[in-house]
């Protein structure tokens, strides 16, 4: 696939480390002793059949679930047990498999809420229009409009999120996540429901996101697409990590082939 992964990957800084992560729901073990890491500036693919635990893994990283066992470290410090908004403010952002925008807010306002993660304007500052409010408001708007333009949504800025087309909603979610100025951005099946051409476009977009300096964790079940865009891939099946490596390694891995064998690609979402 891409030749640009020739650099000795192991020497790069680790943004996120998942360490022996286990997550149980009652008797169900959704994640079982999963260990992997993400290096700065890479696109890591997290793949696996439906129900493998990919979304659960995102939920654990972003603080929705507390790990049953194991640890999650972001830039070296453990974030297991942190509050969700604190994890976001530290620099982890995400999108959702089922689109979850603030539907009756405009596209711009959605992105502004993301940008506000880095702001601290409070009641007094807003009420008296103190310099902090003005500065943050200006910076937030500029950044939000930049991101909307980046996603090709600048013309839709004042449209309600609920009124956007499906594809635009997906892209708006990415813009909102990017607005929180994360170091790591987690995309949960951002291409779900897209046709092949749209998917290819989105993958190109994701590559450009990475080129802007973000580290990307991507859930996507379409093997071919993942191969084209990711630097490394982690494969989950029934909550267990069954393989990890470069796209080329993963493609030829018998365990992965077995996991995906007979699974219709569209069903595997």
């Amino acid at each position: 696939m891409s030749e640009d992964q020739s650099t000795t990957t192991s020497s790069r800084r680790r943004v996120l480390e998942i360490d022996a992560l286990t997550l149980q729901f009652g008797g169900l073990t959704a994640l079982d002793d999963v260990t992997f890491h993400i290096e700065e500036g890479e696109i890591l693919g997290l793949i696996g059949p439906n129900g493998a635990g990919k979304t659960t893994c995102f939920n654990a990283i972003t603080g929705i679930y507390r790990p049953t066992r194991g640890d999650i470290r972001f830039e070296g410090t453990s974030i297991a047990g942190h509050k969700r908004f604190q994890i976001t403010q530290l620099g982890v952002a995400r999108t959702f498999q089922n689109i979850r925008l603030f539907r009756s807010m405009t596209a711009l306002e959605n992105v502004l809420v993301g940008a506000d993660a880095k702001h601290s304007t409070g009641m007094a500052s807003a009420l008296f229009r103190l310099p902090k409010h003005r500065r943050e408001e200006r910076e937030g708007h500029d950044r939000a409009m930049e991101l909307l333009a980046f996603m090709g949504l600048q013309k839709r800025a004042d449209e309600l999120a609920a009124n956007l087309s499906y594809g635009d909603q997906r892209r708006l979610e990415i813009a909102r996540a990017m607005a929180t100025e994360p170091k790591l951005i987690c995309l949960d099946e951002p291409a779900a429901g897209f046709n092949p051409a749209e998917k290819a476009q989105l993958m190109e977009l994701i590559r450009r996101v990475r080129d802007q300096g973000y580290t990307v964790l991507l859930i996507e079940h379409d093997m071919k697409l993942v191969m084209g865009v990711t630097d490394r891939i982690v494969v989950l099946e029934f909550g267990r990590k069954i393989a990890e490596g470069t796209p080329a390694e993963i493609r030829d891995n018998p365990a992965v082939i077995a996991a995906y064998l007979g699974v219709d690609e569209e069903d595997a979402s």
Binding site: T62, G63, I64, K83, R84, F85, T88, Q89, A93, R94, F96, R100, L101, F102, R103, S104, M105, E109, L112, V113, G114, D116, A117, K118, H119, T121, G122, M123, S125, A126, L127, R129, H133, E136, E137, G140, R176, A177, T180
Partner: peptide
């Protein structure tokens, strides 16, 4: 003045979807 600020947006985001608001950094 309050509504057209970070505070007003945080209120609205919370009303729209509290979980997502929290995940977008809104306490």
């Amino acid at each position: 003045l309050i509504k057209d600020s970070r505070v007003g947006r945080a209120w609205e985001a919370t009303r729209e979807d509290e979980d997502v608001a929290e995940l977008m950094g809104v306490p």
